[in-house]
Amino acid sequence: MTHPTPRPKRTGIAALAADDGDFSVVDAIGGPRGVVESVLPGFVFVVLFVATADLNLTIAVSAVLAVLQVVVRLVQRQSAMGAASGLVAVGICLVWAWQSHEARNYYMFGFITNAVYAVLLAVSLAARVPGLGLMVEFIRQLPTEHLRAWLRGWMDDRPLKRAYMAVTGLWLGLFCLRLAVQVPLYLTDQVGWLGTARLLMGIPFWALAIWVSYLIVATPLHRHIAAEKAAKADGAAEEG
């Protein structure tokens, strides 16, 4: 007797698109192992640089650690996608710091990504098409055709749209707060405090934002999904 393969847990914003009510903050942020793999390179970077002030050593150790995480995943025959994407991000940060010979530039890529996300979400709010709603609905139901009908399907659900607008504003605030706190530390070259702020405003803030987003979106989204299923059932009954 074969057992069905369990569905992989959705992480990040994709966790909000689940319609089975099985939401977990821990799973949404990658599970305990995913959290460790996300935090460890940055933690080692700031601690080692503050302790030694040797940028080349810090870069070398951080790079080896990031590669090792992917290798361990592959040896254990586990999905290395998350670790590999993390390796790419860490690699960009390390190369930036190495080429500029400034430890603080390890954090420049993060500033850019946060700024880009903030701008995109701000534009979506101004256009009254919430960016988080686009992401969740795209994950939940890929619009392979009839894009306008797909968009209207959830945009015309006022409670759901209000929820999506609220969580879009929440995430916009998160990205802006990160920049407001961390950019001054970067400009004053306080690498230790900058690294600490990045760690504290990373996974912990991400987990809190995911949880609050779920609390806001869950009820209107579940009602919307139930209405969709009822409408499909009615349509099938009429055709039958």
Rank of each mutant, 00 (worst) to 15 (best):
L40S: 06
T11G: 11
R198W: 14
D20G: 04
L48R: 03
I92L: 13
H3F: 13
P220Y: 08
L151V: 06
Q76A: 00
E145H: 11
L94G: 01
F109N: 04
K161G: 12
G192W: 06
L65H: 06
L194S: 00
H222S: 15
S213T: 12
F43R: 09
L172T: 15
G82A: 11
D19W: 01
A230N: 11
A209N: 15
T52A: 07
Q182Y: 00
M201H: 13
R77Y: 02
T219S: 13
A209I: 15
V47K: 00
K161V: 15
V26Q: 04
T144K: 02
T11R: 10
V88C: 09
V71D: 02
W150F: 12
V191E: 10
M155T: 14
T58H: 10
P32D: 12
R158I: 12
A89I: 01
A63L: 13
G131S: 08
Q76S: 01
L160E: 11
L199A: 05
L134I: 15
G131H: 05
D157C: 06
G82H: 07
T188W: 05
E228R: 09
A18H: 11
H101A: 10
I13H: 08
G91Y: 00
N114W: 03
L120D: 15
A97D: 07
T219I: 07
P6Y: 09
T188E: 09
G42E: 06
A60W: 13
E239D: 13
L87K: 06
A218H: 13
W206I: 09
I13N: 06
G110D: 05
L57I: 11
I92H: 05
V71S: 06
V39M: 14
E102T: 03
L65G: 08
R77W: 02
T11Y: 01
V183L: 15
P143H: 07
A230W: 04
V46C: 06
N114F: 10
F45T: 09
G31R: 02
T11P: 05
V26L: 12
L215W: 14
D157W: 03
V181M: 05
V95M: 11
R223K: 11
A84I: 01
V64E: 08
R148K: 11
D20P: 12
M165G: 14
A166F: 02
W154S: 08
L68P: 00
A237F: 12
L185I: 11
G153M: 09
G173D: 13
D54N: 09
R7A: 12
V136F: 06
T5M: 04
V71F: 03
A236C: 10
L121E: 14
R73G: 01
V136N: 05
L147N: 14
L87P: 09
R77E: 14
L151A: 12
G12P: 15
A60H: 08
A180V: 15
L199T: 08
P159H: 04
M155G: 12
G173K: 00
Q76F: 00
T5N: 07
G195R: 08
L187V: 14
V46K: 05
N105V: 07
D19F: 00
A227D: 15
A118K: 00
G42I: 03
